[in-house]
Structures are given as C-alpha cells and as structure tokens.
Amino acid sequence: MASTVHSARFTVPVADSQSPHGTWWPHTRSLADQLTHLVQAWPADRGRISRILYSPPDWDDRPHSVLVNGRRMKTGSFPRDDTHQVTLVMHDGQRRTISVIPPGTSRSDANGLLAGFGDGETERPGWENEGGHV
C-alpha cells in the first residue's frame, strides 16, 4: 500500500509519481467556496498552485477566478470536460490531477475512497447521475 498524506477530505500520496495525484471530497458544489479548502490542504513541499482547471458539470458555479488566501487565483475549464477532476497548474508549469468525490457522497463511502487512494485497488469516484459507485 502506498503511503499517503491524508486529511479528513483530501488525500495525496507521498510519492508524487502516481496519477491522479490526489483525491478530494469537497463539502459543497460551490467551487468558489471550496477551492480555499483544497489549496490549504495541498502540501507546500509539492509546489505552489498558480491556476486551477475544473470539470464544469461537477460545480454549480463557474468562476473565472477566486480569492484564495488573500490572492486572486485564476480558474478555467474546457466546455466539454466531464472528467470529475480538478487540475492544479503549478507555478513551475507542472500539472497535478485531483479526483473529485461528489459532495453528496455518504461519509462512509467517501472515507473509504479517501483511505483507499493509492492502494492500486480503488476505482475513480463516480457521480450518482452516471451510475457511479457512490
């Protein structure tokens, strides 16, 4: 089993070679409200996030930028993106992909997905409206 850095709603493997590079369970479908939590949970030793790309169907809002920790962070998306992921664009240009667990997922299911991330056996989280396993 891979070692991970784990918080209540975010998991990222200690080794940075795995993709996706983390799993996140936001509280709501408001991207503008939730990005602060994601940015704060991101390990500082993995680099500084400069921009965030998101999958539009996953969110009720579609901001062009959000205020995170006192600075304006650009966000963007591709109109047909339906990956259920966010992509963190790092200051050095590298990209880190984060799987998004739907906010309405039960605590036990989400905790199982977060705890199982990185073990090679956990499937990518699905969304209720597409027959996912939530």
Rank of each mutant, 00 (worst) to 15 (best):
residue 39 V to N: 12
residue 56 P to R: 07
residue 37 H to Y: 07
residue 40 Q to G: 05
residue 29 R to W: 01
residue 33 D to G: 14
residue 52 I to W: 15
residue 52 I to V: 13
residue 39 V to A: 04
residue 51 R to A: 03
residue 48 R to A: 09
residue 59 W to M: 03
residue 57 P to D: 01
residue 36 T to Q: 09
residue 55 S to F: 05
residue 49 I to K: 14
residue 60 D to N: 12
residue 44 A to R: 13
residue 48 R to T: 04
residue 63 P to H: 13
residue 31 L to Y: 05
residue 44 A to D: 15
residue 34 Q to T: 02
residue 63 P to L: 13
residue 54 Y to W: 10
residue 50 S to I: 06
residue 46 R to T: 02
residue 37 H to P: 04
residue 52 I to K: 01
residue 35 L to S: 00
residue 32 A to C: 10
residue 34 Q to G: 02
residue 42 W to F: 12
residue 40 Q to P: 05
residue 33 D to S: 08
residue 38 L to N: 00
residue 49 I to E: 03
residue 53 L to N: 13
residue 43 P to W: 11
residue 47 G to W: 04
residue 29 R to V: 05
residue 48 R to V: 01
residue 32 A to H: 01
residue 50 S to Y: 11
residue 39 V to D: 06
residue 50 S to K: 15
residue 57 P to M: 01
residue 55 S to M: 05
residue 38 L to Q: 00
residue 52 I to L: 14
residue 43 P to V: 14
residue 34 Q to P: 09
residue 63 P to V: 07
residue 40 Q to W: 15
residue 58 D to K: 06
residue 55 S to K: 01
residue 40 Q to F: 04
residue 60 D to H: 10
residue 54 Y to Q: 15
residue 59 W to K: 02
residue 32 A to E: 00
residue 29 R to H: 14
residue 61 D to S: 01
residue 52 I to D: 00
residue 37 H to V: 13
residue 62 R to V: 08
residue 49 I to Q: 09
residue 56 P to I: 01
residue 62 R to H: 08
residue 47 G to K: 13
residue 34 Q to D: 01
residue 58 D to L: 10
residue 40 Q to I: 07
residue 58 D to V: 07
residue 55 S to A: 12
residue 43 P to E: 04
residue 41 A to Q: 11
residue 55 S to I: 08
residue 43 P to M: 13
residue 35 L to F: 01
residue 34 Q to Y: 02
residue 45 D to L: 11
residue 63 P to R: 14
residue 31 L to C: 11
residue 35 L to G: 00
residue 45 D to V: 14
residue 39 V to G: 03
residue 34 Q to N: 00
residue 29 R to I: 04
residue 52 I to H: 12
residue 42 W to Q: 02
residue 38 L to D: 07
residue 40 Q to S: 09
residue 34 Q to A: 01
residue 43 P to H: 04
residue 30 S to G: 15
residue 55 S to Y: 07
residue 57 P to L: 10
residue 40 Q to V: 03
residue 42 W to Y: 06
residue 39 V to L: 01
residue 29 R to K: 09
residue 30 S to C: 08
residue 56 P to T: 02
residue 32 A to W: 00
residue 57 P to V: 04
residue 36 T to S: 09
residue 48 R to L: 08
residue 41 A to E: 10
residue 45 D to H: 15
residue 42 W to V: 00
residue 37 H to S: 08
residue 44 A to F: 11
residue 36 T to A: 15
residue 62 R to S: 11
residue 47 G to F: 11
residue 46 R to W: 11
residue 39 V to T: 05
residue 49 I to R: 07
residue 35 L to R: 04
residue 50 S to H: 11
residue 45 D to K: 05
residue 31 L to S: 00
residue 48 R to D: 01
residue 58 D to P: 12
residue 56 P to W: 02
residue 37 H to L: 14
residue 48 R to P: 12
residue 30 S to L: 09
residue 43 P to Y: 06
residue 47 G to L: 02
residue 43 P to L: 15
residue 36 T to L: 10
residue 39 V to K: 08
residue 53 L to S: 15
residue 37 H to G: 11
residue 61 D to P: 10
residue 52 I to R: 06
residue 46 R to Y: 11
residue 34 Q to L: 03
residue 48 R to C: 15
residue 57 P to T: 03
residue 37 H to I: 14
residue 59 W to T: 12
residue 62 R to E: 10
residue 36 T to P: 05
residue 61 D to C: 04
residue 46 R to A: 10
residue 30 S to K: 14
residue 54 Y to P: 06
residue 51 R to W: 00
residue 50 S to V: 14
residue 49 I to G: 06
residue 47 G to R: 14
residue 55 S to D: 08
residue 63 P to E: 02
residue 40 Q to L: 13
